[in-house]
Design a protein around this nucleic acid. Structure first.
Length: 437
RNA sequence: GGAGGCGUCGCCUAGUCCGGUCUAUGGCGCCCGCCUGCUAAGCGGGUUUGGGGCUACAACCCCAUCGAGGGUUCAAAUCCCUCCGCCUCCGCCA
């Protein structure tokens, strides 16, 4: 939630931010009206309540006749207090709803507009040129099959579409990626965490995932629990309702957890393979820091994401996500998109968001500064989302005979330099006009 | 799953039976000041959090806050109900 004081003092700034996202600005007027109504209700209730308390003090001291008279009078007051209290509660709730509906203010440098307006900041490495090498790359589904790494048929049989089993070197790859990510995080000073993937509504709500993203969230039937789509949810709620000592900031966590997404509204998109699935595992960086440090920390998170992609020896680009595509919580978001050879394009592998004080206000996470307690900033960034990392690694480092070269950094965790087919494979098809062999 | 115990403003703690200067006690820690060669001790003061009024976003005043939410009552830390969490024992399980 945004700073209510800012809303009151400078509503035009909030309007401008909404406009940049392409969202309706009348939300601001609704929130302002709710704020005025709320304060009015508070004043009314508190006046009555103060009077009631004062009377109560007199009654405690009074005796006999005098006491009876006072009692008669305060009985009437009591009803008024109850009424005013209920009115205040309702006004408070209406105000909460109105303010919480407002998305975070966007960063001044965030590109205006929707999905198509995101800006590529940098391109790193060069996509591998299979044509020059003279063979047609296999996609990760095919590679997964011949390496015995990914079993999609049985995933569908057991759990349905968009599910998979990682087997053999596939399972090894997941563990290797997790280990590599956790090792990097540990060396950078992160605390490693294994986080729960079932959370209470407050955690989901507080991180902003029950807003427009609610359709994508699994809820457990008959229980007041949700399956998280990212461990950001659990890690943001981790310090909820706490005041963190300033000396302990920044607090950096690298959390492993499974992630679950309904992928509602993406029917027909990425139906093949494990690019878009209902469940995957992920190592997520999550940071609590001061508002002053947030932007610099965001740059650091991006650098750590890039360092990891470099270790996987991938070609990728860094994208500054446009305002309309930020989601409720983020002030700014950078995606790292890796080149997927058989798709001929860059696809999101990791993403880092600066949520400033938006989540911490909702979850009540503060720090004690010179000017009293203030909300902290929260930031998150993917170190590795397993399935997409596997797709990029398999497709990028494949060889003509169906084997896959293991990036150097992963070799220590894989215990080998090359993944070899477990079934007989013909050499990949030659590209037309390619060098051949 | 069953039985019992507990939850008070950083930590510990008084208060809860029997509702009313509880406007929450005391200690520890911490902060400020005094004293003092220095330190310690001693002495004095301060020290939950959120919100509102008024404003210089100060000072001051007010309201809420005793795990959470309801209820009873003129009045609730205190009585009643529901929920949550922790501890002990039993059962079960990985």
């Amino acid at each position: 939630m945004i700073d209510p004081r800012l809303l009151r003092d400078d509503p035009d700034r909030v309007r401008a931010s909404l406009a940049k996202r392409g969202a309706p600005t009348d939300l601001v007027d609704a929130a302002l009206a709710a704020d005025a109504a709320r304060r009015e209700a508070i004043v009314a209730f508190e006046a009555l309540r103060a009077e009631q308390k004062q009377q109560g003090r007199l009654i405690a001291q009074a005796r006999g006749e005098e006491k009876q008279q006072l009692l008669a009078r305060t009985k009437e007051l009591s009803a008024g207090v109850k009424e005013a209290e209920a009115a205040q509660g309702a006004a408070e709730q209406a105000w909460q709803d109105a303010v919480r509906a407002l998305p975070n203010l966007v960063h001044p440098d965030t590109p205006e507009g929707g999905e198509d307006d995101s800006v590529v900041l940098e391109t790193v490495g060069t996509p591998r040129d299979f044509a020059a090498e003279g063979f047609e790359p296999r996609d990760h589904v095919e590679l997964g099959r011949i390496l015995g790494a990914i079993d999609l048929e049985r995933g569908a049989k057991v759990s349905g579409s968009r599910f998979y089993f990682l087997t053999g070197v596939g399972a090894q790859l997941e563990l290797a990626l997790v280990n590599l990510a956790m090792e990097q995080a540990r060396e950078a000073g992160f605390t490693q965490v294994i986080a729960p993937s079932l959370v209470k509504p407050a955690a989901m709500e507080g991180t902003g995932f029950l807003g427009q993203a609610a359709d994508d969230v699994y809820r457990i039937e008959g229980e007041d629990l949700y399956l998280v789509g990212t461990s950001e949810v659990a890690m943001a709620a981790y310090h909820s309702e706490e005041i963190l000592d300033a000396e302990t900031l920044p607090r950096r966590y690298a959390a492993f957890s499974p992630c679950f997404r309904k992928e509602a509204g993406s029917h027909g998109k990425d139906t093949r393979g494990i690019i878009r699935v209902h469940w995957f595992d992920k190592v997520e960086m999550f940071v609590y820091t001061t508002l002053e440090e947030a932007e610099a920390e965001h740059a650091r998170l991006l650098a750590w994401e890039r360092a990891f992609l470099d270790k996987l020896e991938l070609a990728y680009q860094v994208v500054d996500i446009a305002a309309g595509d930020l989601g409720l919580s983020a002030q700014r978001k950078f995606d790292c998109e890796a080149w997927i050879p058989t798709q001929g394009k860059y696809r999101e592998l990791t993403s880092t968001s600066n949520c400033t004080d938006f989540q911490s206000r909702r979850l009540d996470i503060r720090t004690r500064g010179e000017s009293g307690t203030t909300p902290v900033a929260t930031l998150n960034g993917t170190l590795t989302a397993i399935t997409r990392a596997i797709v990029a690694v398999l497709e990028t480092h494949q060889q003509v005979d169906g084997s896959v070269r293991v990036p150097q950094a992963l070799q220590k965790w894989m215990g080998c330099e090359v993944l070899r087919p477990v079934v007989p494979v013909a050499p990949a098809a030659a590209t037309e006009g390619g060098a051949g062999d």
